[in-house]
Amino acid sequence: MQRKPIEIKISTVVAIAVILHDAKLSVLEAALKEITASTGDYYSEECAVIDVSNIDCSDMNWPALIQLLKTSGFHPVAVRSAPPECEQQISALGLSIDLGSKAAAQITETAVTESEPVPVPVIISSPPPMIIDTPVRGGQRIYARGTDLIITAVVNSGAEVIADGNIHIYAPLRGRALAGASGNIAARIFTMSLEAELVSIAGIYRTFENGYPALTAHAPIQIKLNGDKIDVVSIQSHN
């Protein structure tokens, strides 16, 4: 079979969101130093999306900001929610403009402020869950974008399964599972046996260096976020 010189396919890249709450570079620099303890390669060239929706960036020195993030090991690829007047400058620096989840956020907001007594069905089209029937092996990474991930086979150590929604694993989880990857704090992870290296919900993670909670040994469990703490409870628990 002859292979084409170029193939164009849709591909999902997992990126870190750098959400700025202050426009002053000196403040950001100090905060970054505190996080990374001045280690340059702390984020080891992770792709980063700079989210500026919470700050006024009309006076932003974009080249300096990008340089600052680069020194901390980020690899900025896009700016999310940038004001229109900055777009040209950002594009000139080689970064793309990400419109972010504005559209989706607006739909949810209208749904919440709905005060009509008659329930009006709000249809938010979400993609169907992703279903995987083969073992996820060391070195493999699966991302269910904008949806739930259902795996009917084992997730082995060294594997990474990621979903914007919930993750269901009907077999042992031995690798890493990251649910609510785009910030959904209500996302949960379910597995028949917790033997994981790491679990994370909405960016908050937990490792099990000192062993697994006693109740969970080889029993079906669920993992959920409780404040800023990750809880591991029985699958039957309703607390």
Binding site: M1, T134, P135, V136, R137, G138, G139, Q140, N156, S157, G158, A159
Partner: peptide, 20 residues
């Protein structure tokens, strides 16, 4: 065992049968 798991993943991803 861990390395075997890794190579099984590579077979799943890179073999001609998987790509086709």
């Amino acid at each position: 065992v861990r390395d075997s798991d890794r190579i099984l993943g590579i077979i799943q991803a890179k073999s001609r049968r998987a790509l086709n």
